[in-house]
Computed example of a mutant assay.
Amino acid sequence: MTSFGAAGALGAVFRPQLPPERLRSVVSAADEAGLEQLWLWEDCFLESGIATAATALAWSERLRVGVGLLPVPLRNVALTTMETATLRRLFPGRFAVGLGHGVQDWMGQVGARVDSPVTLLREHLEAMRALLRGERVTVEGRYVKLDGVALDWPPPARPAETADPGAVAASDTAVFAGARGPRSLRLSGAAADGTVLDANTSLAGIRRARQLIDEGRAAAGRTDRHQVLHYLNTATGPDATDRLRAELVREGHDPADGPGVAGDAATVAEAVAQALEAGADTVVLQPTADEPDPEAFVRFAAEEVRPLLR
């Protein structure tokens, strides 16, 4: 079983446009098919990331589950870290978490919008990673304020040598960050253990992201591994091309050359290979919002696409 962050890992998304009660059948299909990773979103105002992750982990035997992303303006860092540590103790090595700015319009709707999203994300990442390492944290930041806070039950550290080669989540203390712009990508390199690139990212965007992440890492003096996870718009089946074109239009892309792939397993596997070559370590197939059979989609990823990557 491939660790989170191991080079060449493949996953799929359960989109929150599906009702929560659909999750169980998708998890079962993914688990039975041998899918490596299932990723969830905490989008306003659809579904909770932590609640769905806990449920998916409990319903599966081996599936690794990630939340990408949790919007930090909605969350107190102590609570987010407690939830993460609890799931990592209950399901060692099977839970990944990513933090992001949140969609600013949504944050405004709930009264959580901040003047400096980059500052908030940096403070949240630094505090959360320290708490997960078992440290006692006192900080008086612009947004994050902690007074002698330490977890009673941090995730137990696992030596890096016990992990798969190249795995970033060797100790269950890793935190990913979602990033798009140059400042956020440099921040992720400096303050996170991995970066989540959304499905709006082109192959050139992956290469540029790697460069900016490395700039942030160099400025922070970091020499540990930093993993890049890329969501890939994916459609398969008889109407795949039409559904992908509609998805790209909804996202404001030119449907003729927007980021994504439509076609059979060989076509999708080639697109995955190109993303890996561009600098991604993990590719997560993101179905269209109107995917007619999400259970079949995760089986397609595991049983048809994955063997072509080997």
Score class of each variant (00 low, 15 high):
residue 305 V to F: 00
residue 194 G to K: 08
residue 15 R to F: 11
residue 306 R to S: 08
residue 207 R to K: 13
residue 147 D to F: 08
residue 297 F to A: 04
residue 108 G to S: 12
residue 225 R to Y: 08
residue 153 W to N: 12
residue 147 D to Y: 11
residue 98 G to E: 01
residue 232 L to S: 06
residue 91 F to P: 08
residue 57 L to M: 05
residue 18 L to P: 01
residue 44 C to Y: 15
residue 65 V to C: 04
residue 5 G to S: 03
residue 213 I to A: 02
residue 77 V to D: 00
residue 217 R to P: 10
residue 295 E to A: 14
residue 101 H to N: 11
residue 123 E to F: 05
residue 113 R to H: 11
residue 277 E to K: 13
residue 19 P to H: 07
residue 241 T to N: 10
residue 193 D to Q: 09
residue 209 A to I: 02
residue 280 A to Y: 01
residue 229 L to F: 14
residue 133 R to K: 13
residue 202 S to R: 00
residue 27 V to E: 04
residue 14 F to R: 05
residue 39 W to E: 07
residue 156 P to C: 01
residue 15 R to Y: 09
residue 213 I to N: 03
residue 178 G to R: 00
residue 131 L to A: 03
residue 140 E to W: 07
residue 21 E to K: 11
residue 189 G to H: 08
residue 164 D to R: 13
residue 8 G to Q: 09
residue 84 T to C: 10
residue 267 T to E: 14
residue 233 N to L: 05
residue 193 D to I: 10
residue 230 H to N: 08
residue 169 A to N: 14
residue 228 V to H: 01
residue 125 L to Q: 02
residue 100 G to V: 00
residue 248 L to A: 03
residue 248 L to E: 06
residue 85 A to P: 08
residue 182 P to G: 02
residue 160 A to Q: 09
residue 160 A to W: 06
residue 210 R to K: 11
residue 122 R to D: 02
residue 203 L to W: 00
residue 254 D to Y: 07
residue 221 G to D: 06
residue 47 E to W: 13
residue 98 G to S: 13
residue 91 F to I: 09
residue 266 A to S: 14
residue 151 L to T: 01
residue 28 S to T: 13
residue 3 S to P: 08
residue 67 V to R: 07
residue 264 D to S: 04
residue 300 F to V: 00
residue 278 A to R: 02
residue 60 S to Q: 09
residue 274 Q to D: 15
residue 162 T to A: 12
residue 196 V to S: 00
residue 289 A to C: 02
residue 68 G to N: 15
residue 28 S to E: 15
residue 190 A to C: 05
residue 60 S to L: 11
residue 67 V to Y: 07
residue 183 R to L: 13
residue 159 P to K: 13
residue 51 A to F: 13
residue 42 E to V: 02
residue 33 A to T: 03
residue 149 V to P: 00
residue 75 R to L: 15
residue 68 G to L: 14
residue 132 L to Q: 08
residue 180 R to A: 14
residue 243 R to T: 06
residue 58 A to P: 02
residue 167 A to P: 00
residue 150 A to V: 06
residue 206 I to R: 01
residue 55 T to Y: 15
residue 140 E to A: 15
residue 223 T to E: 12
residue 215 E to L: 10
residue 117 P to Y: 00
residue 132 L to N: 05
residue 208 R to C: 01
residue 87 L to N: 04
residue 56 A to S: 08
residue 69 L to C: 12
residue 38 L to T: 04
residue 164 D to F: 01
residue 229 L to I: 12
residue 278 A to K: 04
residue 156 P to D: 06
residue 33 A to W: 04
residue 252 G to Y: 09
residue 266 A to P: 10
residue 82 M to C: 11
residue 52 T to P: 00
residue 194 G to P: 03
residue 239 D to G: 04
residue 81 T to K: 04
residue 84 T to G: 05
residue 4 F to Y: 12
residue 59 W to G: 03
residue 194 G to M: 10
residue 76 N to L: 13
residue 96 A to M: 14
residue 247 E to Q: 14
residue 289 A to K: 06
